[in-house]
């Protein structure tokens, strides 16, 4: 399916712009909104490109830079913080040899921090794409990452 077919059904819909951005980002192999995607949305919705850019850079689920196949989102809100989220982030960065916001050289993982994911019942927690992993310790991370190797 082409990108423009992908967003076709949202065009008539009031407020469909966010849905179109979701659809485009999900179909992008680099997990981001490319300039072409944004231009497509701008044209399809008759909205200035600057506004589409403004919307895309407002929401944290959208990225305007290419990312890895798996996006690791580490919650650093208070409930995770008090049970050691920082250690998880440090361990992940060390394990993957990247800093927050970066992508591994093989294009596999992107490491991001995020506000509360609403899974505090199993804090500290991370999300890898749509999958949540909870009750983590720096030691248990290796086995989690292994699932993606």
């Amino acid at each position: 399916m082409t990108q423009s077919m992908l967003i076709q059904r949202f065009i008539g819909e009031p407020g469909g712009l966010l849905k179109a951005l979701h659809a485009l980002q999900n179909s992008n192999t680099n997990n981001f909104l490319s300039p072409q995607d944004l231009e497509l949305v701008s044209g399809a919705f008759g909205v200035p490109l600057a506004k589409v850019w403004g919307v895309a850079t407002f929401y944290s689920l959208y990225s305007t830079i290419p990312r890895g196949r798996y996006i690791i989102r580490v919650c650093e809100s208070a409930p995770c913080h008090v049970v050691g989220a920082h250690n998880i982030l440090t361990a992940l960065a060390k394990n993957l040899n990247i800093c927050t916001g970066e992508t591994t050289a093989d294009g596999k993982f992107t490491l991001e921090v995020t506000s509360c994911l609403g899974i505090c019942g199993v804090a500290p927690a991370i999300m890898i794409n749509d999958t949540v992993h909870g009750n983590l310790t720096p030691e248990s991370l290796a086995s989690v990452l292994a699932l993606y190797n």
Partner: peptide, 25 residues
């Protein structure tokens, strides 16, 4: 730019401290 001239070169971009009026891309 957007409402008087209806061109829309400028728009608010980013969020929080990074919020700034900017151009597309």
């Amino acid at each position: 730019c957007l409402d008087v001239q209806e061109i829309g070169i400028l728009y608010s971009t980013g969020r929080g401290k990074q919020t700034i009026v900017g151009t597309a891309l």
